[in-house]
Nucleic acid binder design. Sequence first.
DNA 1: CATAGAAGCTACAGCAGGTAGAGGTTCGGG
DNA 2: CCCGAACCTCTACCTGCTGTAGCTTCTATG
Lengths: 142, 142
Amino acid sequence: MLSIGTLAKRTGAKVQTIRYYEQIGLMPEPGRTEGGQRRYGNAGLDRLAFIRHSRELGFSLEAIRELLDLSDSPERSCAQIDAVAQRQLHEVEARITRLKALRIELRRMLDECSADRVADCRILEVLRDHEECLSNHDGTGI
Amino acid sequence: MLSIGTLAKRTGAKVQTIRYYEQIGLMPEPGRTEGGQRRYGNAGLDRLAFIRHSRELGFSLEAIRELLDLSDSPERSCAQIDAVAQRQLHEVEARITRLKALRIELRRMLDECSADRVADCRILEVLRDHEECLSNHDGTGI
DNA sequence: CATAGAAGCTACAGCAGGTAGAGGTTCGGG
DNA sequence: CCCGAACCTCTACCTGCTGTAGCTTCTATG
């Protein structure tokens, strides 16, 4: 049987994070020792590894919850799992697009500024006046 | 004199957000009417526009605070402002790099999965087993 | 000038996804 | 058996807002 610290070491999650996952119902309540300490089996370890790995790929905890639920019915079609992954891919792509626009704007700002004094700083001017921007970065999700 | 609602409309910020900026000291406390409602001048409007625009470019509120402080000393060198913008650019670039790695991994997952049943789903297999990944996405800042 | 309703006010709670600390208990190697 | 590491619960905090409740004020119309 594995202590919470061992799970933490093996998966890279922090101890508090594992307890947090339990609190929000993502990890099941494990067995306890007589003294009240958590003890996990391999199922717990595997589930936590799944969660952490999914998090590393950017899935939200809600999406992970969905994936875990779906994986409990092995005979069903995996179309829904596909859809969750597809959605995640789209989100990642949207974020890349947005960040690339920001990168262009930031580079341009930095390029243009050759001032010495704050008073003439192009960066501040651009930040002050949206009209100086090429893109219309609209503040939807960075 | 401008009401908080007018500022909100002109900058695209929500009324609560403006009050929040005031609360954390990013916006100065404006004058008030006899009845206690906030009234702003053009300085307030400009400052809020600066904040919103910087947010759209991904600057953190702390970075914005720094930029606003720096812009108060127009005779100083703008090297520090440059540094803040440079830092932001690096962060954006790091995020792009990371997201591109995620995109590759997600695409590969989706490509490989041609199963019908959840039981054979490649996506779940990949999520279960980190070894199946090509990249070592390490969970540092998405 | 009265009044209705839009807009403002404060204060507090909540979201994601954790992280940190206080203050106390239990586990396990020597 | 003992001591320090690891565990426990509980609470508060982080960023950057957003939403609600319950009340007050402003302003346009009649």
